[in-house]
């Protein structure tokens, strides 16, 4: 594998958990629910995925378990903010802390366990294309799934009727309610979906990416995913661009350091570069104030109590 191909390959792997989590959050936020608990939901997804894969031997059961764990966490969140009208920001932060702490508690016995590494799935013919063949078509199954997820969400949001309802809800829950849509129920579903995807992203980390479980292994990726949604101005394609850009710059700086070329850039700066580059690029592509306003869900973070 030549260097360019290796960088691309690693970029796609590094971007995948961010894409899955951010797309899930995007759906929740489009309905008007801001869940800052992604880090905690990912951590729970990671330990659930790891534990179930360890006991069952099946990574797919693990991913399902991660999905369930993330959804369960977001269900807690939904009860507090949707039924009890709790503050979304505070509850999300609490969920984050709870998830990270609880996963550490549950995960204690699994710290010494290891999982076999899961090989990539090679797509015949396509994987033989020079340079891009290997990075794009000889990947972990979840990488392909993240693309399917993107396609499904893009279609759902902009081409389907339920997607339209979801977006309308995020703009004006009162109007949606007044024409007969069950605002709270739809928000529950959107929040659960966001949690489930965060769980899958966590399970990807612990089952596929670095097959191990240690406390704190999510290492801030949940927060990056949340920030990505905002900087991508709630557009799925930009989420993908941002996630790969972030992954790509991180991987590229590792390659620069490891090349032995002796490029004299402080490594602290190189480590900050993925954040900088992602923010700058996304700010530039989303600089048009009107589109930002059009895409940002107006009711984001606000509790909604349906009138009788």
């Amino acid at each position: 594998m030549d260097t360019l191909s290796a960088i691309l390959f690693a970029t796609i792997v590094a971007g995948t958990p961010l894409i899955i989590v951010a797309l899930g959050q995007l759906i929740a936020e489009k309905s008007g629910v801001l869940n800052l608990g992604a880090e905690g939901m990912m951590a729970m997804g990671a330990i659930a995925g790891f534990a179930i894969t360890h006991h069952s031997g099946s990574p797919w059961l693990g991913v399902l378990a991660g999905m369930a764990a993330g959804a369960l966490m977001s269900f807690l969140f939904a009860i507090v903010v949707l039924t009890l009208m709790g503050n979304q920001v505070a509850t999300g932060l609490a969920l984050s802390i709870l998830g990270v702490g609880l996963s550490a508690f549950i995960g204690k016995p699994y710290e010494s366990e290891i999982l076999p590494t899961i090989g990539p799935i090679r797509i015949p013919l396509l994987a033989d294309i020079p340079i891009i063949g290997d990075p794009l078509f000889n990947q972990q199954a979840l990488v392909y799934l993240s693309w399917l997820l993107f396609a499904a969400i893009a279609w759902f949001l902009y081409r389907s009727r339920p997607g339209l309802v979801l977006r309308a809800l995020g703009e004006s829950p009162t109007s949606a309610h007044s024409i007969g849509y069950p605002v709270i129920r739809i928000r529950y579903l959107a929040t659960l979906f966001g949690g489930a995807m965060a769980g899958v992203g966590g399970a990807f980390l612990s089952v596929f990416y670095t097959p191990l479980w240690v406390e704190g292994m999510v290492a801030g990726r949940g927060w990056i995913a949340i920030a990505l949604v905002v900087f991508a101005t709630w557009r799925p394609l930009r989420v993908i661009v941002g996630a790969y850009l972030f992954g790509g710059v991180m991987v590229a700086q590792l390659f620069v350091q490891g090349s032995g070329l002796g490029v004299n850039i402080p490594s602290q700066f190189l480590s900050a570069l993925p954040y900088l580059a992602t923010i700058i690029v996304l700010v530039i592509i989303s600089r048009d104030q009107n589109t930002v306003r059009l895409n940002a869900p107006v009711s984001l973070g606000q509790p909604y109590r349906p009138e009788a």
Binding site: A6, L205, Y209, A219, L254, G258, S267, Q268
Partner: peptide, 22 residues
């Protein structure tokens, strides 16, 4: 390769794979 973190298994693995591929 400096990863500027004492603890980030994902990044540590990525750095290791980078070194091995080079």
């Amino acid at each position: 390769i400096w990863v500027n973190s004492w603890f980030d298994p994902g990044k540590e693995r990525q750095a290791a794979l980078t070194l091995l591929s080079q």
